[in-house]
Amino acid sequence: MNSSAPPSTLPGIPPATSPGATPLITARDLHLAFGLTEALRGVDLTIRSGEILAIMGPSGSGKSTLLHILAGVLVPDRGSVVYNGQRISTMNEAERARLRLAEFGFVFQFGQLLPDLSALDNVSIPLLLGGMSRREALARSEELLGSFGLSSCKDKRPPQLSGGQAQRVALARALVAGPRVLFADEPTGSLDSLSSEQVMEMLAATVRGFGVTLVVVTHDARTAAYADREVIVRDGQIRSGFEL
């Protein structure tokens, strides 16, 4: 197995806290429609600090939409999302963008690595957006990639990486700015069994080690098995009555 131990230092993350009962993200009565199609029809969800939550459901159920709203990428038509005491569903685009940059990380299935840039450059992007100098950003990125065992890949372009390597680079980029919450949308969707396992192992171990909350959307049960709990989204609503 190629996966290495989770990094021992993660810049910007406070020391590990145990997953407590404190709610970090609270979503109430979320509604969102695209044109005439209702994607979400009244969703309530509470995500606790430090936990790993899997959002599952059939295609078209609205789970990706839910993720985007929780992460402040989309704004619901009705309902509210409160993150760490701040009501993000009413913030404007710029404020939400700043929040995402500072607090959230993203590991999505497609095209989230810019294909023309090297792995190292890709990882450094969040730092550059935050105003860090290029030199320092590259140094930190290199350090992080090294701790993920990806030093050999740092100058390669995403098309030259294997699926698993690319997702781990994506993970590095998501973590480089020290986020509190990681949002993953089908992180293992295009991977084979072994790579899926490696990516999820690394993901789970990393976030647990540093108290980072992880919200992962997946239709794959073995991926969801790495989570603490799951919610099922069907037809725009949460149908599972098995919350803790």
Binding site: A94, A97, L99, R100, L101, G111, L114, P126, L129
Partner: peptide, 16 residues
């Protein structure tokens, strides 16, 4: 626009 979409996701403001 694909590049910009990724940047927006990560947290680049519209002004940026």
């Amino acid at each position: 626009s694909e590049t910009f979409a990724t940047l927006r996701l990560i947290g680049a403001t519209p002004a940026q």
